[in-house]
Design a protein around this nucleic acid. Structure first.
Lengths: 118, 118
DNA sequence: CAAAATGCTATCTTTTTCATAGCAAACTCA
DNA sequence: TGAGTTTGCTATGAAAAAGATAGCATTTTG
């Protein structure tokens, strides 16, 4: 079993346990941000629906991420299924601008990477 | 070799290749945000110095992340060593508030998780 | 020029993630 | 009520990624 990164306890990448390091560890796991993003964008969803929305996530990973996000108080179970908590929405508020920024980034990258292989 | 997620090409987690999905894929790799964070916080650094700043990163992973970040135009090599590009700084600008937010988060989580096991 | 620093690559082990299958419990409704 | 469906996962085996460590070629320094 994996340890769930929580602020205060030492995490991968930092012996200090600085909150931001715990956060980066938590979010730096495959699908962590994607799941939160999807939940916030599309609203509460059951496990199965969430899985479909994420298109390619496997149930095992979805389950792991949900456990972690719930323990981190970013996601909770409601009558409607899984949903972002207030804290989760707050975090999403910080992440959401990345959507717009990514488009700008996309242009910069593409203009310098036209016709690349592999 | 791993494919580097770039906007426009389909990435893990999304067949669409939406820029934000490419970004989340790129950043959702271990140490990706940490490296950018460290570079922006501490300024340009040589490979070795960067490695030390990151405390526990292995050279292989650091090397991979640097390649990806460079291809994504977020990091570049300068006379001073590796450094965030303008684009990278911009992105960091969006990430940076997470530092403060993580502290708030830390309190909420801790208050509900006092004395947990495992 | 010898010693130290730099920038990685190689290698092996441990973790994560992926891809699927499938099962138990809750829900539907004929 | 009880067969069929949906939901929420768990199990499993294989592939990919990350971690730990050693070490080597090149550059820099004294």
């Amino acid at each position: 079993m994996t340890t769930i990164p929580l602020p205060g306890s030492p995490v991968r990448g930092s012996r200090s346990g600085a909150p931001v390091m715990a956060l980066l560890d938590l979010l730096g796991r495959r699908w962590a941000m994607g799941v939160l993003w999807t939940l916030c964008e599309g609203g509460p969803a059951t496990f199965r629906v969430l899985q479909e929305r994420c298109e390619t996530i496997s149930p095992a990973v979805l389950n792991s991420r949900l456990k972690e996000l719930r323990e981190a108080k970013l996601v909770e179970r409601t009558a409607q299924g899984y949903a972002a908590t207030k804290l989760g929405e707050q975090l999403y508020g910080h992440l959401e601008p990345l959507g717009a920024w990514a488009k700008i980034w996309g242009k910069s990258v593409k203009s310098s990477t036209t016709a690349r292989k592999k």
